[in-house]
C-alpha cells in the first residue's frame, strides 16, 4: 500500500498534463479572489496534505479547472463545495462546516477557554488582596522599585531578612 501512494505522489509531481495556468484566465477580479480562496480550502485527495491550489497533481489541476468553470457559470461557493462533497466526501473540505460531526471541533477550544477563565476568576476572587493600605501595597511598590535595580533589591532583601 505505501508504495502505491508513493507512486501516486510521484504522479502528483510528474504527469502534470493539464493546463493549470489557463484555468483562471478571463475571470473578473472578484471571481479570481473567490477562485483563490476556494481552491485553498479544498484538499488535494491524492497528495500528502495539500490544498488543490498548492498541488501539481493532475487531479488537482482538473479540480481547479472544475472550480473555475463553476465559478464562471455563476455557482455559489456553497454549491461548488457541496458538488465536491457529494463526490469525494467531507474529506475534501479543509474548512469543515459546523454540524453534528464538528460542533466539538469548533466549540471545544472556546469552551475550554471559558472554563479556564472561570477557574482563574474564582481563584482571583478567593485571593482578594487584604487591604490596599496594608503591607501588600508597600510590597508592590517595593517590588516595582526593586525590579529596576537588582543591587538595591539585594540590599533590601538583606534588610528584610534582618527584620525577620
Amino acid at each position: 500500500m505505501p508504495r502505491f501512494w508513493l507512486y501516486l505522489l510521484g504522479l502528483c509531481v510528474l504527469a502534470a498534463l493539464s493546463a493549470s495556468g489557463a484555468t483562471a484566465r478571463d475571470m473578473s477580479d472578484a471571481q479570481l479572489l473567490r477562485y483563490h480562496n476556494l481552491t485553498a480550502q479544498l484538499r488535494c485527495l491524492i497528495c500528502q496534505n495539500r490544498s488543490i491550489a498548492e498541488s501539481d497533481a493532475p487531479l488537482a489541476a482538473d479540480l481547479r479547472a472544475l472550480v473555475a468553470t463553476q465559478i464562471k457559470a455563476g455557482r455559489s461557493d456553497r454549491e461548488i463545495k457541496q458538488y465536491l462533497v457529494d463526490r469525494y466526501g467531507a474529506w475534501v473540505l479543509y474548512d469543515p462546516p459546523f454540524n453534528y460531526a464538528t460542533w466539538l471541533l469548533w466549540l471545544g477550544p472556546f469552551v475550554l477557554l471559558l472554563i479556564a477563565l472561570a477557574i482563574a476568576l474564582n481563584m482571583l476572587r478567593k485571593r482578594r488582596p487584604r487591604s490596599p493600605h496594608g503591607r501588600p501595597l508597600d510590597r508592590a511598590r517595593l517590588a516595582a522599585v526593586l525590579d529596576e535595580n537588582p543591587d538595591e533589591r539585594t540590599r533590601q532583601a538583606a534588610r528584610d531578612r534582618d527584620a525577620q
Binding site: L11, L45, D62, L66, R87, Y88
Partner: peptide, 11 residues
Amino acid sequence: GRVGIDWGVAG
C-alpha cells in the same frame, strides 16, 4: 477525467 470526478475517483 470528468466522469472520474463524478465517480469520486482520486487515484
